[in-house]
Design a binder for these strands. Structure first.
Lengths: 152, 152
DNA sequence: TCACATTTAATTGTATACAATTTAATTGTT
DNA sequence: AACAATTAAATTGTATACAATTAAATGTGA
């Protein structure tokens, strides 16, 4: 997974700057770093933020469903959801119909946080210097890469 | 930082699917997961792999220089470099001219690993379903986002 | 030159990530 | 019903990430 800009002259497949994967990695972390101060005002980490977005959209969700949505497993989610429960954002209850499932619901406080969170994506848009069509194209290409992995 | 595909009808700024940042986050992690089995054959993690790429290109590098290249800090690099030293891939020495600097160099084994690593980007290219121009455009857009953060 | 600011790594503490394993609950089959 | 197979979370162990602090070395100005 690398960029062959020349397709002609000598090309180094192991050059860091030619790696699409490194651009992806670095960009993802830089973006998360920019979110951190905004999210800190809401006492959320980035991963907690995307979990809240999933729940604001559809609730309740089992750990498995949330994991499929966020592409994270129980090893990541279980400790995080316990912290979110301790903060009063969500409640965690076993499903009475199927005790294997643990169902995550929003508390009133968790639901209420949505209002304050609205400003986060707005603020972030400001500091990303992409034309609207570029943002759309980037989004499309990222999803194309994701779906080439068998989607989800 | 979100995708407004419609720019017209009711649009939810907190919808997970509209988040460019989530596409970035999920894509980055999925790609890293695909690298893992290939890199495991070289006994490398993904972060160790990009550190090796930086060193294969330019060596030696101080921890600070490596951190600037990879956009990682000493809190991440110090423990990782110690593991890489323990595996015999790199050596870590204080700079005699400036004892504050810790200089990372490749061992012969570390240099030799480059040959086996050549197949990694080749293999990865195969499983990412992007046209060459799409890969270039994705690369360009990721760098544009990165540079809108004051570059590096 | 000598107090003081700056620079560079290392350390500390918190929070993911994820493979592999374990435990408990449910399902499918006989 | 009995029991093997499957499923869902939790747990374990390893490896990042990063903010904040610390410690040591170097640079700097009065």
């Amino acid at each position: 997974m690398y960029m062959d800009k020349t397709a002609n002259e000598a090309f180094d497949p192991l050059s860091l700057d030619n790696q699409l994967c490194f651009a992806l990695y670095a960009c993802s972390h830089e973006v998360m770093r920019r979110y951190a101060p905004l999210l800190a005002e809401l006492d959320l980490t980035y991963t907690q933020y995307i979990a809240m977005m999933a729940l604001w959209e559809s609730e309740p969700l089992s750990v498995k469903e949330l994991g499929e949505r966020l592409k994270l497993d129980s090893g990541t989610l279980t400790p995080m959801l316990k912290k979110m429960e301790a903060k009063g954002l969500v409640s965690r209850c076993r499903d009475a119909k199927d005790e294997r499932r643990l169902v995550v619901s929003l508390t009133d406080e968790g639901r209420g946080l949505r209002e304050s969170a609205l400003r986060v994506p707005l603020e972030m848009s400001k500091c990303v210097d992409l034309e609207p069509y570029e943002a759309q194209e980037l989004h499309r290409l990222l999803h194309k890469v994701l779906s080439s992995f068998g989607d989800a």
